[in-house]
């Protein structure tokens, strides 16, 4: 039998790699003119939270940092005291932007909120037609976490109604709970592991602000391909 050619290329590449690696390379980063680094190789990774941007230890500090980051990113962040307030806020946005139809998915937070809108709703849970979603004014989704350090929203294909809901409609509204506010990126990756491993959703996305581009003269424009607006409502 002739060997599978695909397998051959795999072995060829791995073979070349092993041969190349038979000569060791010097440890990295020992540059001239730079102060020597105190942490040894195996330790470096465990110190990552200490190198990243600072986050306060209390909930209030994290909240304040998330708020600042969101503002800088031109995302709207609103902290609300009750589910009723959240519904009221959502209705207010819907009226202001004269939404005619929204897309969402089933979830404890989104269900009640979307029902209260009194608008036609497309639910992604059992599949949908992307052209239909194109006609929606907003995508309303839940999330896995909010990250204070970066102002990011963490979503997955499981937690946020699939892959397109959070990018196709022109306005993405995220509904979150206060407990979901995490300090930093390492905490977010730890959460993903405990929540999903090994059966990870096929998509995991850190959304940081509305869609943006600087491709024309490095001038910021929102809504390049994804949503022009990102609103985060947190109860």
């Amino acid at each position: 039998m002739v060997a599978n050619p695909k397998m051959n290329e795999r072995e060829n590449i791995l073979g070349r790699i092993r041969e190349a690696l038979s000569v060791p390379a010097p440890v990295p980063g020992a540059h001239s003119g730079e102060p020597p680094h105190a942490v040894s190789e195996c330790e470096a990774a465990t110190h990552i939270p200490e190198w990243l941007p600072r986050v306060g230890s209390t909930f209030e500090e994290r909240l304040a940092l998330f708020r600042t980051n969101a503002a800088e990113l031109k995302a709207d962040f609103v902290l609300l005291d009750s589910p009723e307030e959240l519904i009221a806020k959502l209705r207010e946005i819907a009226a202001a932007e004269s939404w005619k139809k929204v897309a969402t998915h089933s979830n404890a937070l989104t269900d009640g909120a979307c029902d209260a809108l009194d608008l036609p709703v497309l639910r992604t849970d059992n599949g949908y037609d992307p052209r239909d979603m194109e006609t929606c004014d907003a995508g309303i989704s839940a999330c896995d976490a909010l990250i204070a350090q970066t102002g990011s929203v963490l979503v997955t294909s499981q937690s946020a109604g699939g892959r397109a809901l959070s990018v196709l409609p022109p306005h993405h509204v995220v509904l979150a709970r206060r407990e979901q506010l995490l300090a930093d990126l390492p905490a977010a990756f730890a959460l993903l592991k405990t929540k999903y491993a090994p059966g990870y959703p096929s998509l995991i996305s850190f959304i940081t602000g509305p869609s943006r581009t600087g491709d024309i003269e490095r001038i910021l424009v929102l809504g390049a391909h994804g949503p022009k607006k990102l609103t985060i409502l947190c109860v």
Binding site: H105, T150, S157, Q158, S202, G226
Partner: peptide
């Protein structure tokens, strides 16, 4: 930037129970 707009991990095609992909 503090973070780029979208940082996305893809671990497979659409999985059972997922809405799209």
């Amino acid at each position: 930037q503090v973070m780029t707009g979208y940082n996305t991990l893809y671990g497979g095609p659409r999985q059972p129970g997922e809405a799209d992909g």
